[in-house]
C-alpha cells in the first residue's frame, strides 16, 4: 500500500477498499450488525427520546498535548449529546482527506478515534471517505453525527431559574492554551495539555445526584466561558453573575496566558462543563462532580439573578469591582476544534 493518500483512495475502487479494510475498519473494531463500511445503518435498539448532534473538526495542529483531531471529534460529539441529557450510543464518521496526507498519520488518527470510542462505549455505524486535491483542505477534516438516548432532562436554558447556582466541573482555558502553545511553537512547558475528554459519565453522575434540580449543562468550547455564559444568559433571559476569583485555573495556564496578555475567559475547554443547579442540590452536585476523575476541581463560580438587565453576564472581578462580561470579539484562536 502507498505511503500517502492519493486521489484514487476516494474514488470507490480497489484503493478505496484497501483503505477501508486496512486502516479504517480495523481501527473501529466493527461488529457484524454495524459495519462502518456501509452507506447507511439501521439502529434497531436505539430507544427514544433520541438526541442527535452533528459537528465538524478542523483543528490545527492535528496532534497536540492531551489529544488529537480524532479524540477531539469523538469527545466533542459525545459532549454535545451529554449536555442535552443524551447517553451517547452511535456515531457516523465522514473523513475528508487531503491528497498527500501520510497514511501513517491517518492510521494514528483512526486508532485514536477507535480507542476513544471504545472507552466511552460508543460505536461508529456508518461513514464516508472523500479525498480532495492537495491544498483543498489542511490534512484532514472530520465530520461526525452522534446519536443517543435522553436519560435525564429536559435540561437547557429555558429551565434555568433565578436563584440557580452555576458550577464548573474543573479548570478553565486548558484546551485553547495547549493548542496556542503547540501551534505557534511558543515553546512553553509541555505541561500545557488539552483537557479533551468525554463528559457523559460525569453528566450522568450529577444528574443522578441532583435529579430535576439540574437545570442546564453546557461545555464551554469555542469562545470559552465568555461565549457560553453569554449564550445561556441570552437564551434564559436572566442575568448571570460570575465571581472571577472563584474560577479554577491551572497555574501554568494562568501564567502562560498572562505572559501573552490574554484573558482566560474567552479561551476554550474541551473537557469541562458548566452546570446550572437549584440551590438545594448544590452540595450533592458538587460531591458527585468531585467524586469523578474529571470533576476533582469542580467549583461554584456564580449565580443566576433576575437582574436589572436581562440576558447579560456580570463579572465580579477579583479586586471586587463589577463589569459586563461581553461575548468574545474576534476569533483569537482560529481552528481550535
Amino acid at each position: 500500500m502507498s505511503e500517502t493518500i492519493r486521489l484514487a483512495h476516494g474514488l470507490g475502487g480497489r484503493l478505496s477498499q484497501e483503505l477501508l479494510d486496512q486502516v479504517i475498519v480495523p481501527a473501529l473494531s466493527a461488529t457484524p450488525d454495524h459495519a462502518p463500511t456501509l452507506d447507511a445503518a439501521v439502529l434497531l435498539d436505539l430507544e427514544g427520546p433520541v438526541v442527535v448532534s452533528t459537528d465538524s473538526f478542523t483543528v490545527t495542529p492535528r496532534f497536540f498535548p492531551g489529544g488529537d483531531i480524532g479524540k477531539l471529534a469523538v469527545c466533542g460529539t459525545i459532549n454535545d449529546l451529554a449536555m442535552m441529557g443524551g447517553e451517547p450510543r452511535y456515531f457516523t464518521l465522514s473523513l475528508i482527506l487531503e491528497e498527500g496526507l501520510p497514511l501513517e498519520e491517518l492510521r494514528r488518527i483512526m486508532n485514536s478515534i477507535g480507542e476513544t470510542a471504545r472507552r466511552a462505549g460508543v460505536q461508529v455505524v456508518t461513514g464516508d471517505t472523500k479525498v480532495v486535491e492537495k491544498g483543498a483542505v489542511d490534512g484532514l477534516y472530520l465530520n461526525t453525527t452522534g446519536l443517543g438516548t435522553r436519560r435525564f432532562g429536559p435540561v437547557g436554558p429555558e429551565q434555568i431559574r433565578a436563584g440557580d447556582v452555576i458550577l464548573i466541573s474543573g479548570t478553565i482555558a486548558d484546551h485553547g492554551a495547549a493548542i496556542l502553545n503547540a501551534r505557534e511553537k511558543l515553546g512553553f512547558s509541555q505541561t500545557l495539555e488539552s483537557d479533551c475528554a468525554p463528559l457523559w459519565e460525569l453528566a450522568a453522575a450529577v444528574a443522578k445526584a441532583a435529579g430535576s434540580h439540574l437545570h442546564a449543562l453546557r461545555d464551554p468550547t469555542r469562545g470559552g466561558l465568555s461565549a457560553t455564559l453569554n449564550e445561556l444568559a441570552r437564551d434564559s433571559g436572566l442575568e448571570l453573575v460570575i465571581e472571577e476569583a472563584a474560577l479554577p485555573i491551572r497555574p501554568e495556564v494562568a501564567a502562560f496566558l498572562e505572559i501573552l496578555g490574554l484573558d482566560p475567559l474567552p479561551i476554550a475547554n474541551e473537557g469541562k462543563c458548566l452546570l446550572w443547579v437549584a440551590a438545594e442540590a448544590v452540595p450533592a452536585s458538587l460531591q458527585a462532580l468531585r467524586q469523578h476523575p474529571l470533576g476533582r476541581q469542580a467549583a461554584i463560580i456564580g449565580r443566576v439573578e433576575k437582574g436589572a438587565k436581562r440576558g447579560r453576564v456580570i463579572l465580579e472581578t477579583q479586586i471586587g469591582t463589577r463589569r459586563v462580561l461581553e461575548m468574545p470579539l474576534e476569533p483569537g484562536l482560529p481552528r481550535i476544534c
Binding site: 463589577r322 459586563v324 461581553e326 470579539l329
Partner: peptide, 8 residues
C-alpha cells in the same frame, strides 16, 4: 470590550 454596568 469591558463595559461597566450602568447600575453598579
Amino acid at each position: 470590550l469591558y463595559p461597566e454596568p450602568e447600575d453598579v
